[in-house]
Design a binder for these strands. Sequence first.
DNA 1: GTAAAACTTGACATCCGTGTAAGGGTCAAG
DNA 2: CTTGACCCTTACACGGATGTCAAGTTTTAC
Lengths: 114, 114
Amino acid sequence: MRIGDLSAATGASARSLRYYEEQGLLASTRSGGGQRHYPETAVERVSLIQSLLAAGLNSATIQDVLPCISNEAIRTPWLADRLTSELERVTKQIQDLHRTRDILAGLVEQYRVP
Amino acid sequence: MRIGDLSAATGASARSLRYYEEQGLLASTRSGGGQRHYPETAVERVSLIQSLLAAGLNSATIQDVLPCISNEAIRTPWLADRLTSELERVTKQIQDLHRTRDILAGLVEQYRVP
DNA sequence: GTAAAACTTGACATCCGTGTAAGGGTCAAG
DNA sequence: CTTGACCCTTACACGGATGTCAAGTTTTAC
């Protein structure tokens, strides 16, 4: 599939897909004329990238953390620690968001027009 | 309390506190020489601001949503709708983060050095 | 009264994923 | 072929909270 198809399938803009590749997060092959082609599996990979970005990981971290193009999955304690630390961060973030949601819910209650 | 005390009490930098005031989120009185003074209640208010910022609300939205300096709480259907919409956004964000946390947990499992 | 610490305003810098525009090349259908 | 849709690279801009520097003023401690 070409970049437009992948974009349509994932909701990521073509710009973003090129950026992911530039950051070493997403691989593509090129046709004779230089256009990118992706395997079907790219859809899931982009979805994963989007999730991790939304969770607050930056592309360098994702690059470290995902088995990728030039970066075969190497099992090191360091990598496991890194992942665990990100996991803890996200878990804390979820807890904080719960608190914030409660605050917002309280405001909604308070501001509701009777 | 002065800005340094409030900063220490909340973890927000003095820069951020001035920014909150500039955005109409935080009030202060000034001493003769022009230095800001805050009531004790400012600590809680800053904490609230920080939560809402962390939840992805921008300062304009927070200004709309918080009963504030120049912006007395006016109960309008519009405001309730706005808050509700933010509440839904945060709720969805929490759901998405749960999914991402599971993904990260899976990676941790997978990369763990045996 | 003097020095140090804290504060003021203003301006510019940073991050980083994404948008967007320019100028040109590729590909498939008619 | 030609045409229109799609894609390429390069480069610059943005948002928005926060950092940081500069030059000057206020407050506090001694």
